[in-house]
Design a protein around this nucleic acid. Structure first.
Lengths: 184, 184
DNA sequence: TAAAAAGTAGACCGACTGGTCTCCTTTTAT
DNA sequence: ATAAAAGGAGACCAGTCGGTCTACTTTTTA
């Protein structure tokens, strides 16, 4: 693994667990054994590393989610599979996502205001909603695909937040039941 | 207003907007004009102030929410009024909650791990779910009040997260529509 | 009115932050 | 083989962090 990737992986793990402001650059260095000079050779600043971490997590999460959804079929089947995937995530059955600690983008977004980080988080959320919507167009429904996709997103966000903050690890199952009713 | 209250108000405003770790004690002092000694006369540490702020916000939020729900009637009517209240909050029509910046407890929870703060956030969420549940017991339904209350909580959390992170300010309206279907 | 409590201003402290720099070694590519 | 790039170890920097302390003033209370 290249040094930048090594740093991004370690940084994500620490940021995800303890928060971004709570983790100093020196902690990441100590964790990886990488020299400070090397870090600043590849990243202009901590901020740049944070952004790289967000982009990395976006890719990992989207790749995982899309593959899980596509494997389940098309249209509504794919959308409902989203909640099965979430359920696996909450119960730590998805290694690539690391032990469940809520949504990294929601958490990162909470630590900044009027910042590039916020844009990256918003874009990540919009990407997911767009992907859901793409699976819904064409399906017969009196409700528009856009409206349905946004509703599904509400269920998805709610399940994640409820599972993490309130410790309700079965939130995805309830969210799925509501999604079934919505898409029927 | 007493000094402790003054500090708590200003601290909440700053923490809510910029994050807890991002706001130093000196910023709060400068904002309020209070002397550092006075702050440490009333609070043992920044941590103690943070906890006081969480308790304060819990009270303000719960008072507002319960009064909005009770004013709408009983049972399902109260529960559905929750989403109307959220819609007002998202659109900055609720002065006591300050301009909408997402859920303070979700944000605070994101900045700590294995900490008193996390317990306070979890308890806040559980209090709300319990209150919802209390409005649902007795209502005829094949689903238990506990299950319904948790589902409503998923919708509520989802609406807040979606409104804040994705900028979908009408998320409460969609959540309400799903709540109507759920409680029917 | 006098003692006690609460408040102010700000110097000061050690610890830590993100970031720079020097010196030296290892790896890579031509 | 050799030059360039990447990496390591860590001293060092200015700034900021939470928190303490002194000296003095204001407010409250009995």
């Amino acid at each position: 693994m290249t040094k930048p990737d090594l740093l991004i992986h370690a940084a994500f793990k620490l940021f995800y667990q303890h928060g971004i402001h709570a983790v100093g650059i020196n902690t990441i260095l100590a964790e990886t054994g990488v020299a400070k000079k090397t870090l600043y050779h590849h990243f202009a600043s901590k901020e740049a590393l944070v952004e790289a971490v967000l982009i990395y997590r976006d890719q990992v999460f989207m790749d995982w989610l899309t593959s899980r959804m596509m494997a389940a079929g098309e249209g509504k089947m794919a959308v409902l599979a989203l909640f099965d995937a979430l359920d696996d995530w909450f119960h730590d059955r998805v290694e690539v996502l690391l032990p469940f600690k809520g949504c990294f983008f929601v958490k990162a977004n909470a630590e900044f205001s009027d910042h590039t980080v916020n844009d990256l988080c918003q874009r990540h959320k919009q990407n997911i909603t767009s992907f859901i919507q793409a699976n819904l167009v064409g399906d017969s429904s009196e409700l528009s695909a856009a409206y349905l996709a946004q509703s599904i997103s509400v269920l998805k966000e709610g399940a994640i937040a409820q599972a993490y903050v309130a410790g309700d690890l079965d939130a995805a199952k309830r969210a799925k039941a509501m999604a079934v009713a919505l898409l029927k």
